[in-house]
Design a protein around this nucleic acid. Structure first.
Lengths: 220, 220
DNA sequence: GGGCACTGTCACCGTTCGGCGACATGACGC
DNA sequence: GCGTCATGTCGCCGAACGGTGACAGTGCCC
């Protein structure tokens, strides 16, 4: 019965919305797989991220993931490679026409830029959530790619501005970045963080104001 | 073949290392299940948290989880109920003999207390990681229990100290809490956060110093 | 003693997962 | 025409999962 084409064919037709057969184009298929993986990770999170799910979304057979990427690990690595261009695409290089006179000016602006960029990018949000939830080889590579890109960006934006003496800028900035990341993650997951609602634009204005106040408090 | 007792019996005998039968004590079994669930969640994380795993660790049949807790959801709810006593057990109520003269004194102390408490509690760490990774009914209830306990604690510790005027303390404190939580989570997962190593006690001293500086910057 | 509720155990179901071998079909060189 | 290789597809495997019905042993109450 299961092998009766008279029974299965209509079902297959109903499922296969695209009756056209997949064209034989490896690079296109590779791109489709990578795109499917990124969108799947962005929309569903790392929980249901697997070979089967990616293949389903890409509309191809999972075997191709093994052939072209060597499995999920290779695919994740490809995502990480893409990630290196994240900051470049998301955050403007210039200072928006304003002169940054002090390190405090710079960090205030960068904090808000980073906050907005993270709010707008579900993929990186999921990756950050992944980073604090697991410690597998996959997430380690993603994390490394992301932190490298972030460090490069910070370095480039700093320009010739010198940080204030007597303050551990690496530690302070790490805490600021941690705060922003956790704020956005909490908001994305539950719409609030430690009693602070984070849903409406008004909520986010309050958060941004508080963040500015904190940055100004420490960097003047 | 599968139902042939001659084949299956020796295998079962080999697996059962403890020939002693489980004593018939419902409340003890319930406690064992709850303890197993908490330790499993703390050690393995929410990724592999399921009925089978809990039952395995508790050394009982998973059916009992359904009978006594109504499934995983009820078990998670029981964990959440336990969670209400977290702060009380973990963080000293008094101020350690020091007089807190200002709101800044208070928040500096609370920040460091919260940081240490979170560093010492793997279960709550996993729950926080869970909170920013999923938005299911399970994690929502856990999150609610935790945030309520946290709010109560903050309120109790505040005492009669009045926060400074003109600053959104809810937002600022939410950001501080977010920073601490993310810092500890990142450290626990990867041993660093945004380029700041978080492994040795010396690393943590630097982080604590930076945190104090930030709190002092915003609260004086 | 005879029911009866409670506790614990087991086997089984349907589903999904990661992974792989085998096969069909197109494209291209000779 | 023919072989050869790359590309895409199919079906299977073993394992683990959540969930459930049926059964065995125990102790208590009538």
């Amino acid at each position: 019965m299961l092998n009766d084409p008279m029974v299965l064919t209509p079902v297959a037709d109903a499922i296969r919305v695209e009756p056209e057969k997949r064209i034989r184009d490896r690079s296109a298929t590779e791109k489709a797989i990578l795109k499917a993986a990124k969108s799947l990770l962005a929309e569903e999170g790392f929980q249901n991220f697997g070979v089967n799910a990616v293949a389903r979304r890409a509309g191809c057979d999972k075997q191709l993931i093994y052939r072209y990427y060597g499995g999920l690990n290779g695919l994740v690595e490809a995502i990480g490679a893409d990630l290196g261009t994240w900051v470049k695409d998301r955050i403007p290089e210039d200072t928006g026409g304003m002169f940054l006179l002090t390190y405090g000016d710079l960090m205030e602006r960068l904090s808000l830029l980073f906050l907005e960029a993270l709010r707008d990018d579900p993929l990186v949000r999921r990756i950050v959530a992944w980073e604090v939830s697991e410690n597998t080889e996959q997430v380690r590579r993603l994390s490394e790619a992301r932190s490298k890109a972030l460090a490069n960006w910070l370095d480039r934006m700093r320009g010739s501005l010198t940080p204030p003496k007597g303050v551990d800028v690496v530690a302070v900035n790490a805490i600021l970045i941690a705060a922003i990341q956790h704020l956005v993650l909490s908001a994305s997951a539950g719409g609030q963080c430690a009693g602070l609602a984070l849903k409406t634009p008004k909520d986010w204005e309050k958060a941004a104001t508080a963040l500015k106040r904190i940055v100004r408090g420490v960097y003047g």
